[in-house]
Design a protein around this nucleic acid. Structure first.
Lengths: 345, 345
DNA sequence: ACCCATGATGGAATCGTTTCCATGAAGCGC
DNA sequence: GCGCTTCATGGAAACGATTCCATCATGGGT
């Protein structure tokens, strides 16, 4: 049950190991030697061991993928994107799910470090401190879908960051990031709701929503009401509690923008529980298009992000790093109007 | 930017590399040496390279995870289970998504082989041929959630297999498998529907549903109508087409069991399109509980599988293999009654 | 006082691959 | 025919860890 090594192939073909290695990695060799080696290798079903190669070359092929939760369809799609890109490049993918916890994230980074994985795509939960060690050892990191919260949230800062997206060094230390254009997505949704006559619009947010919230405030302008911007923790229960609390404390609101699909779920559930009819009593726009949005009755109006592309592009960036200095990318979002929004009652 | 190696630690601590290795892996060493080495290692932020270790030990820690599609919440949960178990064991996880295609599965197995991953949890798409190479090289494989289709589907065979679940060698060559108890899940659902008075009950199935279908036939007994057992390919479109075709060709059916959440989705959509009201015109039971099942209106009655446990147990088995010869496991399913089933109209 | 057991320690081999370098042969121009 | 270049080729080093084995010191028993 021993693995066949390059040495076995070399012996069987009557050549040296160096020659086998060259043939297999495309180096120069005489046609007849090449043919013989190839034949023998195929016959012995030889597969070069990635372990030996990586150890020698001081680089592990393979990319790491860190995200908060594979259960969330958004991240599931993102992961599929990364997997698709990695597969076409023939690279293995190591995944870890952080549960949104910076500490677990940090632990998982440690594991990747131990595995000598030097290319990572991450939906970050932690901040600069969490990612410092990774960067210091020379890991190539690309963030996808999220970006570590900035210490300050002033609009001017955010504008600078957007500017950075067009090529300037990033505030986080130049980590390239693939994001959906939340700003424009939120703006479109808010304007749509405004156009329907809504004035008291709430934002139901989760962790890491600094960008979306600031876009929300900006789009709403003078209409913004701080009481209508609420945050829930990461869990389903917290989301439900937040939604329910919001609807009960402010029965005057007529529209709500849920910042993620779990929050949207919570909003639908809470509304049903409180006998608020959608869209008659309450208009709802949910961030992220998921299959069940169409199954809901009424079907939910959503802001769709190209989740799979997010992952694919991020993986592309991380693989190309070194060849070309990676730049950040902003992908478009789309407002998909279904049936969960109506005119202000 | 060079990695700090065991040699660096050894020099800095004024000892030999062997001593460092021993200290770090719990071998014997004098207290003061141990302390000094530990201090130096911590100070240099030393992490042993998994590459070196694995190469030497001829075994890669780390487990491979192969499943059809991370986008499907069922597999997402299963993956989270595997990840949770792996994390608690400190093992990295390599994932691949096969798209349900045996050829891609085979390719991914090849990649795992190259990476010297010798422990794999898989939701298999291919058959014995696909998995032969993996087994021949001594990989420890555990199947989860699915089992490769048997060449024959005779009930007697199936009974033998169930028997096998209690500990006898399996037909596939003894690969341990962690399954949800589909047989009992389907039976419960069918009896529930029968109890509501339904007689013409359809099964809407997908690839790899041999077990569920045979359980369905068995539970339905003489009521079974071959025209009411339809299969769709893996895609959403195929599922929708199958559901729509079924409803149109047999308007006399009064209940349907959808064999997976994508099929359930398709059924809800098709029913809506054809103006069939659930549950008035049509009762629906869906396999697998997903968050949106509760959001649907009416909320869907489902057969819940412990997807996360499936993954966790499978990972446990694959990690324990060698210590204890792994046995197959059957986990219970549960019928969750919500609002999508009514009495026969 | 001597010898043996015990335990700490470091050197060196090893895992499978890539890659540098030396060797030898062959081809070519003069 | 000689010397040069060019090319195929194989030996050996290197990667970073573990582990076998030899060495050395110490301590206890006789």
């Amino acid at each position: 049950m021993k693995r066949t090594t390059i040495k076995d192939v070399a012996e069987a073909a009557g050549v040296g190991v160096a020659t086998v290695s060259r043939v297999l990695s495309g180096g120069s060799a005489s046609p007849e030697t090449r043919e013989r080696v190839l034949a023998v290798a195929a016959h012995l079903d030889y597969r070069p061991s990635a372990l030996g190669r990586n150890l020698r070359q001081q680089r592990t092929g393979g990319i790491g993928l860190l995200l908060p939760d594979l259960t969330d369809p958004l991240y599931g799609r993102l992961a599929e994107g990364v997997l698709a890109c990695a597969r076409s490049a023939g690279e293995p993918v190591l995944v870890g799910s952080t549960g949104g916890d910076p500490e677990q994230e940090s632990e998982l980074i440690g594991m990747l470090l131990e595995q000598s994985v030097d290319k990572v795509v991450a939906v970050p939960s932690g901040d600069a401190d969490t990612w410092g060690p990774a960067l210091r050892t020379g890991m190539t990191v690309v963030f996808a879908g999220e970006r570590p919260d900035e210490p300050t949230e002033e609009p001017v800062d955010d504008l600078l960051l957007l500017d950075g997206l067009r090529g300037r060094p990033r505030v986080e230390g130049g980590i390239p990031t693939v994001l959906a254009d939340d700003r424009s997505g939120v703006r479109t949704a808010v304007q749509y709701l405004k156009g329907l006559g809504h004035r008291r619009i709430a934002y139901l947010g989760g962790p890491g929503h600094a960008r979306r919230v600031s876009a929300f405030r900006e789009a709403l302008g003078p209409l913004v009401d701080d009481e209508l911007v609420v945050f829930a923790g990461g869990s389903r229960d917290a989301a439900y509690a937040a939604a329910s609390g919001l609807f009960q404390s402010r029965p005057d609101l007529t529209a709500v923008l849920a910042g993620g699909n779990q929050l949207g779920e919570a909003a639908v559930l809470a509304a049903r529980e409180l006998d608020l009819r959608i869209p008659r009593d309450l208009s709802l726009v949910m961030y992220d298009d998921v299959p069940w949005a169409e199954l809901c009755s009424p079907p939910l109006t959503v802001i769709a992000q190209p989740a799979q592309d997010l992952g694919y592009r991020a993986a592309e960036l991380v693989l190309r790093a070194g060849i070309r200095r990676p730049r950040s990318v902003l992908l478009p979002t789309e407002l998909i109007v279904r049936g969960s929004c109506g005119p202000r009652r």
